[in-house]
Amino acid sequence: MLARLNRKFGYDERSAAILVFPVVAVLLVVAAYPILYSFWVSLHDIVLTRPLRRPFVGGDNYLRIFGDERFWLAVSRTTVYTVVTVVVTTVLAVLVALLLNETFPGQRILSAVLLVPWATPSVVNGLMWKWIYDPTYGLLNALLLKVGLIERYRAWLGDPDLTLMLIANAAVWKQMPLAALLLIVTMKAIPDDLYRAAKVDGANVLQRFVHVTLPALRPGLMLVLVYETMISIRHFDLFLIMTQGGPGDASFTLSWLIYVETFRSLRFGTGAAMSYVLAMATFLLSWAVIRWLGKRI
């Protein structure tokens, strides 16, 4: 058997296999096994506070999720949040990238400052924005009162019509710099000849952006859209710190629902099933974005 393997695979292939094996083994233990095990869990009615019973229920957990109105509420909240966060982040990132792609005094300093929000830990970001929105001592209230836009302090995060947008704002503030950075890298790779040729053809600034910059940005945009979608759809930390899903159900997103189901209600079976649904949704969305933009590259 060993001799046959030796004959089939050369020294280099055998060496490569031996060298790769530890990483594969680690990945199997820390990635593949938990993924498969959590799927197994999602097929059982596991409630931690009822440890003596864990019946196999097959796809019932998935059916239960789809019949749960909280799930569809969370889907709608997640969709709104994701769309707003991704669109605003991408548009702002394009604008910032266009600005920083130009040469002007202080450009390097501005580029460095831009990275500060991205370097800020997520938890710190959440706490900072919670402080800014605070109804009694928040900076936003003080600022708006000073410029006369409000007459009295408001409970911003206590307003269910605003909560999701305010959290999205905090997310955009943190995520936009990285997106801008990725787009700047793509912009730097656009040959100047294209712009010169467009100018010769009489294209104005807007036309050069639409017909030269934007098509060339597609690889970077695809990366940004996929990355931001994956991040936004699974966002959790801001919701935990800023609103805990509230007020009421105003910020009840899928990630929050999974947290509540798994770690508060301790229903690990349905929690795992919801996680799978979220993972599949993320995968399909990313695949769709790649297919859609990929065809245009």
Partner: peptide, 16 residues
Amino acid sequence: GEWVETSNQAWQAVCL
């Protein structure tokens, strides 16, 4: 532990 999640949302819905 499970019920109180629904209860909390109900009370907040009243407040809002």
